[in-house]
Structure formats: C-alpha cells, structure tokens
C-alpha cells in the first residue's frame, strides 16, 4: 500500500495497470463474485455523479435567488426546502445552510477533517478541496488561500470560514455582479462558478464571461 504511486491528474493512461489499479480491480471482482455489489449499480452511481449532478444545479439556485427576492428570503430561512423545490436533494445535501456574501462579509467553506461538500448542488468536490493544502490552510490563512485563487478581499471585510464538521452542508450565495441589471436567470447562472459557491472566488463579471 505504501508503494502505490500517487494517482495525480498527470497520471499516464498508456502505462500498464499500476498496483493500485490492480488492487481496485481485484476488490471489485471479489465483491461481484461474492454478490455484495451489482456492477450495474456501480455504473449508475458513477453516471449520476459524473454526468447528472454538478455545480450547474447550484448555479440555478443562486441565479434564482438573485432575481427572486421571495425565493432568496426562503433560501436563507429554510435552505434545504428551498433547494429541494428546484429538485436538488438527497445524499450529502440533507441539511443545507446558505451563507450570503455581502460588502461586509465574505464566506468560504472547507472541511478540515475530511471532504464534506453539498453534493446535490455542487456535485463531487474538486481535488483541491479534498487536498491537505486547502484543508490545512483555509482556517488559519484564509486570505492567503483567497489570494492564491486570485481573489482580493479588503482588510476591512470580515472573512468567515465555515468548517463542515457535521452533516450540515454549506453553500455560499455570492454577490450578484455589477452590470447585470435586467439579466435573465439563465444568463445570470452562467456567471456563477463552482468556486464562487465554495467561496474561494467571486462570481464572474459580465466582462469575464465575454473572455471565456
């Protein structure tokens, strides 16, 4: 186990199977042969979280909150129900909390103990969110972390870091960018990045959208 290579994103798929790949294949075949897993269920789980559930869900929630004051009030008051009304519910989103960024406060979410993350709205977490550098530094050096993401927050603004130590799941409601008056929900949703809902970046400006 100690000799397994790191499975980084630069892993070369043309190499022969690593010890790690063989270990996983061996485990799966054991579980299938013992009747403990259904391989089709494994495929369905992978398909669901690779293709169907992701941060576009959260972007819809945010864009609706930006355009519909009643929905926003509900979202802040009873986030689990408000988010469920858009169809985003279930595992790792059973108990939602939405935290609003304002000119006075910037919110940022971490799980220092593991990788807790709101799956129904954001999908599975990115590698950096689960990694030791982010988990160690987010609570002690949030401003340094934000700078690393290119996010400048004035010294006068409170940074509040939410450490997800329970089954409460935190979603940041980013500030609506300037210059978006009259935009439709669908257009606004394009400004809402995954990282802005974790709180390490701000939502895109209209100019930044043009660049992509």
């Amino acid at each position: 186990m100690n000799d397994t290579p790191r499975a980084d994103h630069d892993h070369d798929h043309t190499e022969p199977p690593s010890d790690l790949e063989l270990r996983v294949k061996s485990l799966e075949s054991l579980l299938v042969d013992k009747g403990l897993v259904d391989p089709e269920a494994l495929d369905a789980l992978i398909d669901r979280y690779e293709h169907k559930v992701g941060p576009r869900n959260g972007a819809q929630v945010v864009a609706k909150a930006w355009t519909d004051p009643e929905f926003k009030a509900w979202l802040l008051e009873d986030p689990t129900a408000a988010i469920e009304s858009l169809g985003f519910t279930g595992r790792q989103g059973e108990h939602m909390v939405v935290v609003e960024n304002t000119p006075e406060r910037h919110n940022m979410v971490v799980c220092t103990l593991c990788s807790c993350y709101p799956w129904p709205t954001l999908g599975l977490p990115p590698v950096w969110y689960k990694s030791a550098p982010y988990r160690s530094r987010a609570v002690i050096d949030p401003r340094g972390v934000l700078r690393e993401f290119g996010t400048e927050v004035s010294e006068e603004v409170e940074i509040r870091v939410w450490d997800s130590t329970s089954e409460m799941r935190y979603l940041v409601l980013p500030e609506r960018p300037a210059g978006t008056e009259g935009w439709s929900e669908a257009d606004l949703a394009r400004l809402v990045t995954r990282n802005s809902m974790i709180g390490v970046e701000k939502a895109k400006s209209p100019a930044e959208l043009d660049q992509t």
């Binding site: 994103h9 790690l20 996983v24 294949k25 789980l45 992978i46 992701g54």
Partner: peptide
C-alpha cells in the same frame, strides 16, 4: 477539471457508496 481522474477512482467511489 474532470470529476474523476482515473477509472479506478470511479470504481472506488461507487463501491464505497454501494
């Protein structure tokens, strides 16, 4: 960024949930 970076990650994720 892809959701998974290797096929074995997909299988470990799904086996753990299943």
């Amino acid at each position: 960024e892809p959701v998974f970076h290797a096929d074995w990650e997909r299988r470990v994720f799904a086996m753990t949930l299943a």
